[in-house]
């Protein structure tokens, strides 16, 4: 396809910004660590028992990497969902993954279970399965409208369930609300591994099926152009929902990234998914990394509040521009 806009420029610019932002974000905080020292810590030139090493390697680096990877998952999945569901308002949570995860997490918190993430993941996957079965309704294939509708129904029922749990949770309600708003303050290296793997899954799915998504989103009958749409849509939605369920179980529910980043990136990339997917993955990583840093700087605000505060006005602007 002919390049529209300087794709390479944006890839390089976003990658460089992400790298610089990572260094900067890790260096700031209650204890300032100069970027040079951060690099030395990462390359092992500073002793592992030096306080700077402990702060960087145990706290700030995993947190920054997890936030970036989750941002990449949400934005990349947003592109995929909007592309194959032919709906500009689709986002990674459209098929009920977020409410399912929230339900699982709320349950785990009220029952004082020691592990929240596995419950959140189980809830997300369970809700996805339910939406999938409802959306297909015994047929071989499903229309995007049916899937979206099934997502709305499952989401509403689970939402009511969450409200019920909150009402019965007593003093745990504060913990539930904080979890629902999302945070990276406790990110571990395990979280980094899982979220990075999810981000990689989304990127690979998106790149492998980029042309198929172009054809599907163009409005053509995909089959007449050789696209096995049933297989492509099924794999893409399922893979990205799974990645989102993992992301949500790590960070809680973080809104607007999956909705706003793809729309912003389209302004410079056009609708072609070969460019849209990688740029959105980078853009989402950068946005969530900076949002999390802002959340951290303002005394551990929930990061979901920051993304909503940034994303809301951007979305209004895009809407006003008529995109």
């Amino acid at each position: 396809m002919p390049p529209r806009g300087p794709f390479r420029f944006w890839i390089l610019a976003l990658s460089a910004s992400l790298g610089a932002a990572l260094l900067w974000v890790i260096s700031i905080g209650e204890v300032r660590i100069p970027p040079g020292d951060v690099i030395d810590v990462i390359f092992g030139n500073i002793s592992r028992i030096d306080p700077r090493s402990v702060i960087v390697l145990s706290i700030r680096l995993p947190r920054a990497l997890a936030a970036s990877a989750v941002g990449a998952v949400l934005a990349g999945s947003g592109v995929v969902f909007q592309g194959v569901l032919l709906n500009p308002l689709a986002e990674p949570y459209t098929l009920g993954v977020a409410t399912g995860a929230a339900f699982g997490a709320s349950l785990a918190i009220t029952l004082h279970l020691p592990f929240i993430s596995p419950f959140a993941f189980g809830g997300g996957v369970g809700a996805l399965g339910l939406v999938w079965i409802l959306g297909h309704g015994g047929r071989e294939s499903s229309s995007s409208t049916r899937l979206i509708l099934a997502g709305v129904i499952v989401g509403s029922v689970l939402g009511a369930g969450i409200t019920l749990i909150k009402a019965l949770a007593g003093d745990q309600v504060g913990v539930i609300v904080l979890w629902l708003l999302g945070s990276f303050s406790l990110a571990s290296w395990g979280d980094v591994g899982w979220s990075m793997a999810s981000a990689l899954l989304v990127l690979l799915l998106g790149l492998f099926w980029a042309r198929d998504m172009d054809v599907i989103s163009s409005g053509a009958n995909p089959r007449s152009l050789g696209v096995d749409d049933r297989k492509a849509v099924g794999l893409l939605l399922f893979g990205c929902s799974l990645a989102t369920a993992i992301a949500v179980s790590i960070s809680g529910i973080i809104g607007f990234v999956g909705l706003v980043v793809p729309h912003l990136v389209r302004l410079v990339s056009g609708p072609s998914h070969g460019r849209l997917v990688p740029l959105s993955v980078l853009g989402g990583a950068l946005l969530l990394l900076l949002s999390d840093t802002a959340a951290r700087s303002f005394g551990e605000l929930p990061v979901g509040v920051i993304t909503a505060l940034i994303g809301g006005p951007i979305f209004c602007f895009l809407l006003w521009r008529g995109r």
């Binding site: 396809m1 002919p2 172009d214 989103s217 163009s218 409005g219 053509a220 056009g270 609708p271």
Partner: peptide, 14 residues
Amino acid sequence: GFLMPFTVMETVLM
């Protein structure tokens, strides 16, 4: 049924 703002060339290349 064209939905997304692909260029004419991009569309024909599909």
